[in-house]
Design a protein around this nucleic acid. Structure first.
Lengths: 188, 188
DNA sequence: GTATATATATACAGGTCTGTATATATATTT
DNA sequence: AAATATATATACAGACCTGTATATATATAC
């Protein structure tokens, strides 16, 4: 099991990275807020970059498992899952705990394609798109990849908008747009 | 008229901010690439933050004037402008000079809503959306604001995707999606 | 109670960053 | 040629950053 201190550091770093930016958050700040010391942080994470990568992994895994569980327990038909996708995403975005999507901000702060942080961000974005694609394939969509890309654009755009201004209501319109695109693709 | 050195610094900073990140680019690097010195930079810009703001302003103004000129010279009917919007945006994104949209990255690196950089980013995002909204209003779209928001989400999502991976082709699918959404809104 | 693992406290080395101070050079103008 | 504006060269102060070294404290296990 994961040490409570390690997981505390991960939680605090996730929050600080989102609210202050990754490069603007020093490890001194992280350990101060987490109520521990640098020695402990460097015991669990070999470097700040390693910490960033673990924060990204945890954030993505948490989101993906939450989302797929919501979809699996609340829908049966594949097309229903697809249509309910943005319902749950909206729920997630409008929850008070929402701080943004890790890989979107990380890729902006680490634009160099050779950076491990950038590479992980790109991989997570691809993974999410593939998950949508699998939903579309199950729902017998003809151009599943095309629809998945379009929906992921709406998703990333709305998250971006919500990161820029909390309570923007962007996801409500993304949901409407997704319904139009999905309905269109279903009748192709 | 603007000094050639000042404009050179702006051009270099724009490029470095996009390719390496804003916080990861020091003023020493900027002046070295621009072939000048720090003393000159601080003659034209009172601080790095001031330079960032001017870089953002120039980038946004350049894009907006280029886009509206393209639309005005190539289309007559308002609805035509709306439909051609993503044609030109795709052209802009796929041009070899494309380095990303300034305000999208800047808002990620400066998440604090009180930061002047964040505020300018948010304002530019709003301005762009309002421009789309004016196109939609001219084309007699019923819910012009709603469509404008949806199109801007597609736009920001596709730019985000393209920043993450050059040559992703995301804008091609954004263009298709925009056509579906616009056609739907026109027939409402 | 002694040994062992874990966490703390503190200091610091070496680097980078922004912004300024000081002195010199190069043009342009009169 | 002298005066003025503009650019350069260089050094540095003060702050912050990551990562480590050293010594101490606390808790669990045997």
């Amino acid at each position: 099991m994961m040490s409570t201190l390690k997981s505390k550091i991960l939680v605090v770093a996730t929050d600080l990275f989102q609210t202050r930016g990754i490069n603007s958050t020093g490890v001194d700040t992280i350990v101060a807020v987490a109520g521990t010391t640098k020695m402990t942080l460097y015991k669990y994470f070999i470097s700040k970059e390693n910490l960033i990568l673990e924060v990204l992994k945890k954030g993505h895994d948490d989101f993906q498992s939450w989302l797929s569980e919501q979809l699996n327990t609340n829908s049966k038909k594949p097309s229903e899952k697809l249509l309910k996708l943005f319902e749950f995403i909206e729920e997630w975005v409008t929850s008070p705990n929402f701080r943004g999507m890790g890989f979107i901000k990380a890729s902006a702060e680490f634009p160099n394609e050779e950076s491990p942080v950038h590479q992980l961000s790109a991989e997570q974005s691809r993974e999410f798109r593939q998950y949508i694609c699998s939903l579309a394939t199950d729902a017998n969509i003809k151009d599943a990849e095309g629809l998945a890309l379009q929906l992921s654009l709406l998703f990333e755009g709305a998250v971006q908008a919500e990161q820029m201004k909390r309570g923007s209501g962007a996801m409500k319109y993304a949901k409407k747009a997704s319904k139009i695109l999905i309905d269109g693709a279903l009748s192709d």
